[in-house]
Write a protein that binds this DNA or RNA. Structure first.
Length: 509
RNA sequence: GCGUCGCUAGCUCAGCUGGUAGAGCAGCGGAUUCUUAAUCCGCGGGUCGUAGGUUCGAGUCCUACGCGACGCACCA
């Protein structure tokens, strides 16, 4: 049936073998990335129709193939871009010309030859030798429209990456952003650390966890929802500045801003406070934008977001007053306003109602980066209270396009207050999946933690905003998808590769 | 979990108020030494997401289920 396309390629594979050619290639040195080849053609000032004497090697996947008989033009793609390869019957050894005639879209090749430009001025490597590096058995998607079905794009990201250059570009930019964040912090004496992903007690955020089990110890464990409590232990230990790129796992819904596993930057700075974290956030993001290029005013869908610093630092209460028209300390007004939008939780703490008003009226309306600071203390169990007003906690969220990009505190380092707020938090949440008190964390605080500022920044979301992608799934290489049911008897499939019963000893680690 | 929309060839998509499936690209055969989504001539390719139902007749209408996208809820 539909295996005709694959069967045809299998036959070509056999023809290649009959020619004495290994269709799966091997080691190749001195490969120049396509972007460098392009730059080189510019530097050599080669004119249309000319070919230089300099020899080069090109490698890539065939994404376009134009067969003109005794002349074949191939567009090769690598992660840096495309480059044209010219194959001429008169320039290739006889056997290699036979390979050329058996090439298909998606095959991977290496070629040696001279850089030049065609008569139509296209930078081209004219091949003297052609090396087949991998015969592709499956055909690529449509060459003009590419692969657009999001389902297939996410499940078969490998096809998405070599088919859609803008996808490759996003993930290369993600690498640049993460490297920039790392360098920025390392330059400022932050130590990059790794703390447990498997935790016997989870905390540091409010979310349902994934659970797992360790067989030998016979204990249940949780995949971390946050590294916060471990990083604070390091402050106690004397590491004054620490950060971690933390993969967090939250057993919650999936939408354009949430993936069950996501990457959070968490950083802590002893003797600092949340004002330092605002400076840090501005510095980090600005530095990333400088590296990416494109300026501080960036397109995001139909909108434009202005990242020019300094970003407004607004008080939570002022914003609630401005957008909801309510004094958040006026209990009756808060309840009335909440009721007016259909929020009527009889037993809800007042802080929860205030948060509902904020979520409804304020947050969606903040487009440009805005620090929302000084939150109601009852919403912030891990945050230091304002010395002059205990109702307020020294916390901010950084909001961009109505989305929480970062969350930061002046950290609470009073063990007595910490224990009290955590117990209050636990009491308010009757859900049996909620955390138990982390006694060791309290004990650590009793040994003494320096005052500190701490921040958590969603790196996937940062990549969304800076690359202009509307969904977090466009910034995560393999976002979670529900597995498709296998058709009995069908080989392969588009699912995630390894099942749970993968034989031991086959992994590299 | 709820709602809306979608699922037709390997890919991108048409297919009206029900009448028995189409295009482009890819593929196959042929021509072609400067193409750029190459071009020209010819050819093959489908369990219309799955299972039921209505009907003389279903890609089209109905029901259920599966998967996805978006929105809502959840995510302090």
């Amino acid at each position: 049936m539909s295996d005709n396309l694959i069967e045809t390629r299998r036959q070509k594979l056999q023809q290649l073998r009959d020619l004495g050619i290994d269709p799966y290639g091997g080691r190749m040195d001195r490969i120049l990335p396509n972007r460098m080849l392009r730059e080189k053609v510019e530097r050599l000032k080669i004119e249309a129709g000319q070919t230089s004497e300099v020899k080069n090697r090109v490698a890539g996947r065939i994404v376009l193939l134009r067969n003109i008989g005794k002349l074949i033009f191939i567009t090769l793609r690598d992660s840096t871009g495309d480059f044209q390869l010219g194959l001429s019957k008169s320039m290739l050894p006889e056997n290699e010309w036979k390979i050329a005639k058996l090439l298909d879209l998606s095959d991977i090749v290496v070629a040696d030859g001279h850089l030049g430009r065609t008569k139509t001025n296209e930078p081209t490597l004219w091949a003297e030798h052609l090396h087949l590096q991998c015969k592709a058995l499956r055909p690529p998607p449509e060459k003009w429209h590419g692969l657009s079905d999001p389902d297939i794009r996410y499940r078969q990201r490998y096809v998405d990456l070599f088919t859609n250059p803008e996808v490759m570009r996003t993930f290369r930019q993600r690498v640049l952003i993460l490297n920039t964040v790392r360098e920025y912090l390392v330059e400022r004496s932050f130590l990059e650390v790794e703390t447990p992903t498997l935790q016997p007690i989870y905390g540091g955020a409010a979310a349902r966890p994934f659970t797992t089990h360790h067989n030998t110890l016979d204990i249940d464990l949780f995949l971390r929802i946050s590294p916060e409590l471990y990083l604070k232990r390091l402050l106690v230990g004397g590491m004054e500045r620490v950060f971690e790129f933390s993969r967090n796992f939250r057993n919650e819904g999936i939408d354009t801003r949430h993936n069950p596993e996501f990457t959070l930057l968490e950083a802590y700075q002893a003797y600092g406070d949340y004002n330092d974290m605002m400076d840090l956030a501005e510095g980090l993001v600005t530095c990333c934008i400088d590296r990416l290029g494109g300026g501080m005013v960036r397109k995001y869908g139909e909108k434009e977001i202005d990242f020019t610093v300094p970003w407004p630092r607004r008080k939570y209460a002022d914003l609630v007053k401005e957008f909801a028209g309510v004094d958040m300390w006026d209990s009756a007004a808060v309840r009335a306003k909440a009721a007016s939008i259909g929020i009527e939780k009889k037993h809800a703490a007042e802080a929860v109602l205030i948060a509902d008003l904020y979520d409804h009226f304020v947050e969606p309306n903040l487009l440009n980066p805005t620090f929302v600071m000084d939150w109601p203390a009852d919403l912030c169990p891990l945050t230091r209270r304002d010395p002059s007003d205990p109702r307020i906690a020294q916390r901010f969220e950084l909001i961009v396009n109505g989305m929480e990009l970062a969350n930061a505190y002046t950290e609470l380092n009073d063990p007595a207050v910490q224990e009290a707020t955590l117990r209050k938090q636990l009491a308010g949440q009757g859900d049996e999946t909620m955390a138990v008190m982390d006694e060791d964390f309290i004990q650590a605080l009793e040994y003494g933690m320096p005052p500190a500022g701490g921040i958590g920044m969603g790196l996937d979301r940062l990549v969304m905003l800076l690359t202009g992608n509307p969904s977090i799934r466009e910034t995560i290489l393999f976002p979670l998808q529900r597995p498709k049911a296998r058709v009995p008897g069908e080989q392969g499939g588009a699912d995630s590769p390894a099942g749970p019963d993968t034989a031991p000893g086959v992994t590299k680690s």
